[in-house]
C-alpha cells in the first residue's frame, strides 16, 4: 500500500533488496535509500529513446528551409 503526501510517496520494496542498496550506497554521495532509488528511477524513465515527432507540415518545412538558405545555413 502506498502512502502519499503532496510531494512524495512511499513504495514498498523487498527488505533484502533494501539492505543490499543500503550497503551499496555507503560512502557514496547518496544520503538515503530513497535518494538512490529516486536517482535510478529517473534514469530509467528518461532512457526513452523515442525519436522526436516531425514538428512541421511540408509547407512549413519548405518555409524554414528557404529561410535557412537565405541566411546561408543551407546550400
Amino acid at each position: 500500500m502506498e502512502k502519499e503526501n503532496k510531494n512524495y510517496t512511499t513504495i514498498s520494496i523487498p527488505t533484502p533488496l533494501a539492505k543490499k542498496i543500503k550497503d551499496r550506497i555507503k560512502g557514496t554521495g547518496f544520503t538515503s535509500l530513497s535518494s538512490y532509488v529516486t536517482y535510478v528511477l529517473r534514469e530509467i524513465i528518461s532512457s526513452d529513446k523515442e525519436e522526436d515527432e516531425e514538428a512541421f507540415t511540408k509547407e512549413d518545412e519548405e518555409k524554414v528551409k528557404d529561410r535557412l538558405r537565405a541566411l546561408g545555413y543551407l546550400e
Binding site: 514538428a55 512541421f56 524554414v64 528551409k65 535557412l68 541566411l71 545555413y73 543551407l74
Partner: peptide, 14 residues
C-alpha cells in the same frame, strides 16, 4: 544569426 529550435532542428536534420 538568430535561429529558433524549430529551425536548428531542421538544419541538423538537413
Amino acid at each position: 544569426y538568430n535561429l529558433t529550435p524549430k529551425e536548428t532542428r531542421l538544419l541538423f536534420k538537413e
